[in-house]
């Protein structure tokens, strides 16, 4: 994959997130905002919410994927420039959660796009979200190491 070839190291200091809502109940979305608020202040790690997928390094996907939004998820994913990460926030996105039997849901998200980190919880607390992002960074580090060993 192309993703492996471009160095991901720079994402560790500056991570711009685009928030993609694929039919969540808004609780997860509020928790993302809570992560950015003074109490947890994610900006001190260089994490910032941006308004367009073109600027993003990481997609924060909330909610399970509804039938209507299926193809839009793919489009947004394709608009994010490489290298990119996908973090799923909430039980809905990870496993379909409480919408297990719904006819309107096409999810979970990893049916459509490759996911790097799942953050379970309904909704997950801000601590969990920060931990999930730290996990993503760990993943970056590991892939760097593997690349270094291979070359």
């Amino acid at each position: 994959m192309i993703r492996k070839k471009i160095s991901l190291k720079n994402l560790k200091r500056s991570l711009w997130a685009f928030h993609l809502n694929t039919g969540s109940c808004n609780a997860c979305d509020i928790e993302i905002l809570a992560t950015l608020m003074p109490r947890y202040d994610a900006e001190r790690f260089g994490i910032k919410l941006v308004g367009t997928p073109r600027h993003a390094d990481v997609l924060l996907v909330t909610g399970t994927v509804t039938e209507k939004i299926k193809d839009k998820v793919l489009r947004v994913y394709e608009q994010v420039p490489e290298p990119k990460l996908v973090i799923v926030i909430g039980g809905c996105g990870s496993t379909k959660g409480v919408f297990q039997e719904s006819y309107a849901m096409a999810g979970p998200i990893d049916n459509f796009i490759p996911v790097d980190v799942f953050i379970p919880g309904c909704p997950p607390r801000p601590e969990a979200i920060v931990y999930g992002i730290a996990k993503a960074w760990e993943k970056i580090e590991e892939s760097e190491k593997r690349n270094g060993a291979a070359s």
Partner: peptide, 12 residues
Amino acid sequence: YDMGKLMMKQSI
């Protein structure tokens, strides 16, 4: 840091 990252990224 942001500049460094943006320079590394793909330009679409």
